[in-house]
Simulated scan of single mutants.
Amino acid sequence: MRIVIAPDSFKECLAADQVASALARGWAKAAPRDEIIEVPLADGGEGTTVALTEALQGELHSVTVTGPMGEPVVARYGLANNSDTAIIEVAEGSGLHCVPPDERNALSASSYGTGELMLEALAHKPKVLIMGLGGSATTDGGAGILQALGAKLLDKEGNSIPAGGIGLGKLASLDLQPALDALGNTRLVVACDVNNPLTGPNGAAVVFGPQKGASIQQLIKLDANLAHFARLAKKQGWDISSFPGSGAAGGIGGMVAGILGAQLRPGIELVMETVELESHIKTADLVITAEGAIDNQSAYGKTPAGVALMAKKYGVPVVGFAGMLGQDFSALQTQGLTAAFSITRGPMELQSAYAQAEANLEQCAEQLARLTHALSKGD
């Protein structure tokens, strides 16, 4: 049999290549003669830089940038095609995983480090800069990125506004030309995994703020500050809020598209295209995908949905594994997912689930291989 393993990462637990390797080891235990193809994926969040750089046979570079709470963090960017293509992701410089849960502060978390990462990549003068948006700790509308690129975001006294979404409330004037000059002639392509608007009940703050440490009162403040930013930008002719995806990564989606002129693309589609997943799936007997959670949101631009839709095109069955399985993923099954299973063996603390994830993935893949081959013998 020909088995294609195409998972995403398990957020804050395992990288996509680790998930793929665990599943491959498990399958090989039960069916060592099968052909197993590992294709780690990402949908714009954690792992996008590695997945795309490796797919393009490029090189990863590590630099130290300013983390979301002001601390130094080591972030990676990729270069490929003789440095004509650069790859970065928000999760590397401004990711939620960079901040311990008890230290998360949605009001002051800044995207400044992502701007620094962009500058490092832009120093190589790439023709195209691919940027993944998922996994951010920030809700600052990309203000930190703009400041790192040289833009002036000033308060009424002419001082730079404070870091984070809280600073947007003090914003009185914008000089964005230095950021545009920093981008130069590089074309910006952005991998985005959500369609949320910038503000409102489905906006960046209200939907994603809680996981970044925001209280209800803080969500209201952040939403108002993002709206204030959008109004000031609009007065200067910049639209950062009227289109789907403007709320991605705490509003970075709106900023990069509306101000920096980025092309927003569904993250999973961009990654699948780059790694040439279709060429592997069309001749597969079975596809295995995986993500930290499979639920009613998975059908909307997430990795399992992208994989399922592509496999459905060729009539190939798809099995999904997840650390947590939601009560309703029927939309995903309509898209082509054959079945989904949780890898956890029973009720346990989150940290225990993280610690056992690799072994559990391996065990589940082994059991699936045993079942698959037993059923195929009965045909």
Score class of each variant (00 low, 15 high):
Gly26Arg: 08
Asp181Pro: 02
Thr372Lys: 03
Ala339Leu: 12
Ser376Glu: 15
Ala284Trp: 03
Ile87Val: 15
Asp223Ile: 08
Pro100Gly: 12
Asp17Leu: 05
Glu116Asp: 07
Gly47Leu: 02
Lys170Asp: 14
Ala16Gln: 07
Asn195Lys: 14
Ala121Ser: 13
Tyr314Cys: 07
Asn185Thr: 13
Gly113Val: 10
Lys152Gly: 04
Ile161Arg: 01
Gly315Cys: 13
Val19Trp: 07
Gly320Thr: 06
Ala86Glu: 05
Ile220Val: 15
Ser342Ile: 00
Glu59Lys: 15
Ala42Cys: 10
Pro72Asp: 01
Asn360Asp: 15
Thr48Ile: 11
His373Met: 13
Gly132His: 10
Thr85Phe: 01
Lys212Gln: 11
His373Arg: 15
Glu103Gln: 15
Leu60Gly: 10
Thr138Ile: 00
Glu92Asn: 02
Gly301Thr: 10
Thr344His: 07
Ala227Thr: 13
Ser246His: 09
Ala80Trp: 05
Ala172Pro: 05
Ala121Phe: 12
Val90Glu: 00
Lys152Ile: 00
Leu52Met: 15
Ile288Cys: 10
Ala290Gly: 06
Ser110His: 10
Ala20Trp: 05
Gly250Gln: 07
Lys302Glu: 09
Leu60His: 10
Thr289Ala: 11
Leu219His: 01
Pro210Trp: 07
Lys221Asn: 02
Ala284Glu: 00
Val307His: 07
Asp223Ser: 06
Ala86Ile: 08
Met310Gln: 12
Ile37Val: 15
Ser83Cys: 14
Ser62Val: 13
Ser21Ile: 02
Gly326Glu: 11
Leu361Asp: 08
Gly44Lys: 03
Ala16Leu: 01
Ser62Cys: 12
Phe10Ile: 04
Leu171Gly: 00
Glu38Lys: 15
Gln263Met: 05
Ala143Trp: 07
Lys377Gly: 12
Glu12Ser: 11
Leu371Pro: 04
